[in-house]
Nucleic acid binder design. Structure first.
Lengths: 268, 268
DNA sequence: TCTACTAGCGAACAGTGTTCGCGTCAAGTA
DNA sequence: TACTTGACGCGAACACTGTTCGCTAGTAGA
């Protein structure tokens, strides 16, 4: 059974963000047959797929995907839950569309200028950043193959950049897949932690987080030294670093791992 | 804000599996204050926390965590949902206990004999394998710090093995955290794909999966060549490899990344 | 034996995603 | 312009969900 996840699950606009480059004429791309087509309905009310996704995204940002209820989205649009099913087959599909919207936000770096290592790094950080700003939406990226024009262009550019840097084809293709998985996983985990701390304000949340980590540190410090000599003596190093630092550390390990597979070139 | 995830979220028995080494006297470890203590109740019925977890785990294995309903678990035990709340604070806590049970299954390799690189590899594969056998339970490992004796021992041994191999302390600590995240993410994604294919029997599922991947391949093949030269010309390589191969590829990239940080030693 | 307590749980609450089928209104035809 | 047609909109209901309340009943201790 082969696996098509070589295409990164995270995408974004090619250049439309930083530079003022004119958009391509947007020749329509083929339609992926495995995901539902947007319904084509002549709206008679102010509701539309776009507005539904708008509302759902706002709820996700405020409370996470769990807060997205058909009733609630419908209410916010002044109607009942049944009306949404004209535009969307299920809650699941609605959330997929929200995810699709979110990944369009990811800006793509100038791969030509940066070289593949820094290009991959920048992409990963941007993508992670976007996910972190949208609660637990990263969870929707698992096992998903993005097929929007922007996503595809991003994957193409990333791939081209790596190939130009002599990364073997199969390494480049698979590495993109693996890195995307890692990005989504970390973003989701970050959201989970943030939620666990609770706290109405960011400061309160920060304080509760610190209290939690203190507890964890105390727990590990209290382990019997003779049975856990490494963990107790290196507790300091284990507890160091915030989420962002750890994320970057992982990305850099990935990049170093890829670099070690580039022929005729010393990894460091 | 520091972050305690240096401790791997996946754990397992030290040697109790392969070798016949006598178990340690099991001196009680400190109790982590941040997670709920098992209720201490004198059961008057055949239900107990252990039996509840048994039933829940069986449901997870058969259908995934979504199938675990309080009513259903209760029914299977011949009682009503309210009875479960004497042993467990919430459905969430029940699933956490199921996860705790599952990670106890992970066997630990003989790190002393293998060296850190092969040790990490074996551990990752074992852990992944266990998760893959228990539906989407890997999702419960996100943002979780396992604190069972076995898990802690596993983390200790893994850490010790890497330090013996001259991996810098902070690299070893963080790497364990990152690799654990990657393992869980891939296991979860694997389950999602499996579910997407549906199919009652494994053969049927395999066939549906193949059909799905064919669709995806066709889609990418149908992209305009001039706009997506890399993806269209390297489709073969992108589609190659099943989930397991890709997982191993990622682990090996991680290991190579760590190795590149070992001083006084050529990575390959 | 009597009391005090607590494990066990039936019933209910406040939600959830989704479906059915009826009204209604706009477009297409005569 | 009048009529017919059909699809959109959505109120109401279905079959669930996690969780709580407070009553019943049986055991442990006095």
């Amino acid at each position: 059974m082969t696996d098509p996840r070589a295409v990164t699950r995270a995408g974004g606009p090619r250049a439309a963000q930083a530079k003022g480059t004119a958009q391509a004429p947007a020749e329509p791309l083929p339609v992926p047959p495995w995901r539902p087509r947007p319904r084509e309905i002549r709206a008679r009310t102010p509701i539309s797929l776009e507005r539904i996704v708008d509302v759902a995204l706002a709820i996700v940002d405020a409370e996470g995907t769990e807060g997205v209820t058909m009733r609630r989205v419908a209410n916010e649009l002044g109607t009942g839950p049944a009306s949404l099913y004209a535009y969307v087959d299920s809650r699941e599909e609605l959330l997929q569309r929200v995810h699709e919207r979110v990944i369009e936000e990811v800006p793509f770096p100038d791969f030509d200028a940066l070289g593949w290592q820094e290009g991959v790094r920048q992409f990963a950080l941007s993508c992670h950043d976007v996910y972190r700003r949208h609660a637990d939406i990263a969870l929707l990226s698992f096992a998903d193959i993005p097929t929007t024009a922007k996503s595809l262009q991003g994957a193409e550019d990333l791939l081209a950049s790596m190939l130009r840097g002599n990364v073997p084809v199969h390494v480049a293709a698979w590495a993109l897949d693996r890195i995307s998985l890692y990005i989504a996983a970390d973003a989701y985990e970050g959201w989970l932690m943030q939620v666990r701390f609770g706290g109405a304000t960011p400061e309160e949340s920060e304080e509760l987080g610190r209290a939690y980590f203190d507890q964890v540190g105390d727990f590990f410090a209290s382990l019997p030294r003779e049975r856990f000599p490494m963990m107790t003596s290196h507790l300091q190093e284990m507890m160091e670093g915030d989420g962002e630092e750890r994320f970057r550390f992982g990305i850099d390990m990935f990049i170093a791992g890829i670099a070690s597979q580039v022929p005729n070139q010393v990894p460091n």
